[in-house]
Design a protein around this nucleic acid. Structure first.
Lengths: 334, 334
DNA sequence: CCGTATCAGTTAACCGCTTCAGTGAACCGC
DNA sequence: GCGGTTCACTGAAGCGGTTAACTGATACGG
């Protein structure tokens, strides 16, 4: 009993059927061979327990059958949705997702992107931390690249699925303004602090337009860490009457801070999030938040990608409009 | 200007240095060559922009430098922690995690496992949906396999990181019993319903020992879906005085159901979860839950794996004891 | 001073599959 | 009945590395 049973190769199948290896290769892929031969080859392969060797195949053909997913930070809820979504979308297609996580580090992201290219992924979905890096253009020239959240600079990507952050900011700010808030704090996330995600630009523009005083502060993504920042903001001498958070998990940190300080939401301070995380409706009070349709974005990105790798590119650019999900965490200022 | 600049190969580096390809291969790995040659080769490689081709390397050597992570269901919070944790642990090691998601389907899990083997991963971390499948033993014979949550049947895996579900159940049940509960509903998750995760066996054993009446019901993982099950349970004629959920997200579903039915927690019904999800402390009321030390498990699994692939296996079996995190969602029965 | 290690490199055979160019044979229209 | 296609398949050259076996030097112990 061999401890490590060697797998059957294409040559053995060729021998068993009396064909050449090339013919077997063709037959297994259902091309350039007669129906009858294909059937014979399949039978022999089955018999021998033959299964194609993906690495050899990738080396010879320059294609791997994998779709790369490069997450800026897999800790983010929405990137997890992306990871789950793409895996699910590929079920039954004999394609697999190769998920890599840059852990929030732009340099690592580029290194991983190179790795994915060398790994001969057939396509790449990326939410670039730095969309202006020249590598993206280079990659987009040699394989389908779908970017999420930002258009890549230069290069002709296979598709872009962008969310309209400007509109999202407007929704939130107008909502708060309409309730009477004039002094709001904005907690942006570190993930949003790349040169190209001009969240605070939008915020400042809206604030000016609406005549509101805003202070923009950067906070970590995890609510536990964001709590400290929130505490500082809420303990400031002229406490803002509302806090607009650039992700729901930051908003959770604000909830924790209000609890610690004995403030009521929305009585003492209104809180508005950004994500519509599934948990947000379950909190007390349920969180008002900008819903940028994460599921829709994920589905769109996967669809564009799958179309692109299957050679029938359709829509190149998808923009999903955000909507405001008004719950009970926002109200008039005290 | 070539549209698709061809990458430099090892042969070109050989030519540039006047060495044989083999010597370059050795030099780049820092073996069987003089310091001086290695330096020269490195310089030439740098100059030519040479980078090793991982696929060719994997084909020739039978190793890929990747560690496979096979998640039963990437929707689970703790498996996401695992995915994040392993990626993070590999930063700077020139190793990458290949994350695949079986989407809760045991058949797909096995298919993916085969795929990972064929992909020549250097090691495999798996949380088997069905630990008794013979494939695991076969895999464990040819590469380091670390299983989480269940020991694999047969085969000598590189390591096992198991959580003591029996102890976890005991903690929760004794807590509820101590508060005076005698009629409790147990919502187990579908993920736990494999032949080998005898959650309900433990539950029934404990119930008998403590003299409690339990009804065990299976619920979906997502809280939105679990809510329906919870509604049925809580609307039953003789409503249980406590609900013990086999994951925090199921407990969230119970929260939602109590809200819908106008029941107070823990006044009308006590709720106990299982996970200590980061959100659980933020709910109203904060959730009492069994903390099985997800972070510790993840770290342990990654450590065991890394040790195994680096050829210095240390601990084969790690058991992390759970603890009970008592918050405000449990109290005496009404 | 000889036999034997050791070191630094070389040669060539793979790893298992794909693909390009080529070869008969059958089939086609005219 | 002949030139031209099409079809089904073969042969062999890769894809870009690794590695076992081998070769000369050089070092070393006795």
């Amino acid at each position: 009993m061999p401890r490590q049973r060697k797998r059957a190769t294409i040559r053995e199948v060729a021998q068993a059927t009396g064909l050449s290896p090339a013919a077997v290769s063709y037959a297994l892929r259902g091309i350039q061979t007669s129906e009858e031969t294909q059937e014979r080859v399949r039978a022999a392969a089955e018999e021998l327990g033959y299964e194609a060797h993906p690495i050899a195949r990738a080396l010879a053909s320059g294609r791997s059958g994998m779709i790369g997913l490069l997450c800026g930070s897999l800790e983010d809820y929405w990137q997890q949705s992306l990871a789950v979504g793409i895996g699910r979308a590929l079920v039954g297609r004999d394609r697999y997702a190769l998920i890599l996580d840059a852990a929030g580090d732009p340099a690592r992201e580029l290194a991983l992107a190179r790795r994915l290219r060398d790994q001969r992924v057939d396509g790449l979905i990326v939410q670039p931390l730095d969309p202006s890096a020249p590598l993206w253009a280079e990659l987009a020239d040699s394989l389908p690249v779908v970017s999420i959240g930002d258009a890549l600079h230069g290069g002709r990507s296979a598709g872009e699925v962008v969310f309209d952050n400007r509109a999202g900011v407007t929704l939130a700010m107008e909502h708060l303004h309409g309730l009477g808030h004039r002094r709001v704090a904005v907690l942006t996330s570190t993930r949003a602090s790349t040169p190209d995600r001009p969240a605070d630009v939008h915020v400042n523009a809206e604030a000016e337009r609406l005549g509101m005083a805003v202070t923009v502060v950067t906070a970590p993504q995890s609510w536990a860490e964001a709590t400290e920042v929130a505490l500082r903001v809420l303990a400031a001498p002229d406490r803002p009457t509302a806090v607009f958070c650039f992700s729901d998990s930051i908003a959770y940190g604000v909830y924790a801070a209000t609890r610690e300080l004995g403030l009521s939401v929305p009585g003492d301070v209104s809180v508005c999030g950004y994500d519509d995380h599934p948990m947000s409706g379950l909190l007390t009070p349920p969180l008002t938040t900008v819903d940028w349709d994460i599921d829709g974005i994920v589905r769109a990105a996967v669809r564009v990608m799958v179309d692109a790798v299957d050679g029938r590119p359709r829509r190149r650019r998808v923009v999903r409009p955000p909507s405001l999900c008004i719950r009970d965490s926002t109200g008039p200022p005290p």
